[in-house]
Amino acid sequence: MATSNEADLDPGRDRALSRLVRDVAALPEGEDPWCAGVVVAAGTGSDPEPLVRAASGWAVRHAAHDRELPRERWEPVRTDTVFDLASLTKLFTTVLAVRAVERGRIELDAPVAAYAPRFTAAAEHGITVRQLLTHTSGLVPELPLYECGSDEERRARLAAEPPATPPGTARRYSDLNFLLLQAVLEGAADEPLDRLVHDTVTAPLGMTSTRFRPPASWLPRIAATEDQRRPWGKLDRGMVRGTVHDENAYALGGVAGHAGLFATADDLAALCRALLRGGGPLLSPASVELMLTAPGLGFEIDQPWFMGELAGRGAAGHTGFTGTSLVLDRATDSYLILLANTVHPRRRPADSRPRAAAATALARAVRGGGPVA
């Protein structure tokens, strides 16, 4: 594993890191921008200061999908802007799950029904905790829980949903896995997910700008997401800012195992440094190894489509629908955080090329040269 001092020896590093910022942070100035605004942060586990931290573009630019605000009311992105993390929330749920395994509160190969017996379909089909974390439960990607009339209906719909394929036979990414995992964790600890995240992850790491359901006082710091309205939106909510973008997480009260957290790049960097240093104070090194080694638990491993040239030697990370991504490369002791509002003022076709370009620039900076073989 390279240290930050070893990475410093690369004479082309500064040029590569400048390219990282140019390739992503400058994109909002283009004619067809990938996002309204973005924060890029990269660093190493051994250095509390990032190698690069940059902000560009706008946290709020539109009043509606087809109407810009007056120019004087545009709000710029800053390095401390708070973003809706979307599916990066899954990484926090994963850390909680692996810690619960480490502490003997749950077992990876135990059935979900041992901790959340109300999930009758999971019990009937023998879905395990490990299958939730590896997306091999067979559950469909999502359900329209936001269409249910009450929390009781939502719980019943989720509990009764059978797997579409036999558990353990195929990988299919699903938000439902992490809604069931939330129930497992809450059942094992007898605490709600938001309290578990605070007490177990954010408070020990001093992540004071990370939480579910941010208070009204945070609103001036939060980047807007989407003008949600039909037909492209699943709910008619208008411009979303300060409440979770994901419709199911919104219907579930803003706290969900798959989405709902808001955070800054600096806070996420604290989490990255802790994991790169071996997990303390959150996890043991053995638990980090289990979580970040292929096939991975909760984390995606070596995915070039968003990791670029960081992929190939065990890089781990995840993306979020709102435009977020996080990559850990233990081979070079480095991390990359990209927080963007690609859905402002409305969602657009998926495109992870800017994520991959940023990751490639970082890879070339810390690995000292050309593409990874």
Rank of each mutant, 00 (worst) to 15 (best):
M1H: 14
M1G: 14
A2T: 15
T3C: 03
D8Y: 10
R15H: 10
V24A: 00
A26V: 00
P28A: 08
P28V: 04
C35W: 02
A36V: 10
S46C: 14
D47L: 10
D47E: 11
P48N: 10
L51C: 13
V60N: 13
V60H: 13
H62S: 06
V77R: 00
R78C: 09
V82H: 03
V82Q: 05
T93M: 04
T94E: 04
V95H: 12
V98C: 08
L108T: 06
D109C: 07
A113R: 11
A114R: 13
Y115N: 10
P117K: 08
R118N: 11
R118V: 12
A121W: 03
H125F: 11
T128D: 13
V129Q: 06
R130A: 15
P144N: 10
S150M: 10
D151R: 15
A160F: 03
Y173R: 03
S174A: 08
L181N: 04
E186I: 15
G187W: 04
A189C: 14
L196I: 08
V197Y: 05
D199K: 12
R211K: 02
F212T: 04
L219A: 10
R221L: 13
A224S: 15
R230D: 02
G233N: 02
G238T: 07
R241G: 01
R241F: 01
V244W: 05
D246F: 01
N248C: 12
G253K: 12
G254I: 08
V255N: 07
A265F: 00
L268K: 06
A269G: 09
R273Y: 05
E289G: 01
E289H: 07
L290Q: 07
L297R: 06
G298E: 09
F299Q: 02
F299K: 02
E300V: 02
I301W: 05
D302S: 03
W305C: 02
A311G: 14
G312F: 07
R313I: 03
G314M: 09
T324R: 07
D329H: 13
T342R: 11
V343D: 03
R347S: 12
A350L: 10
A356Y: 06
T360L: 13
L362K: 11
L362N: 14
G368Q: 05
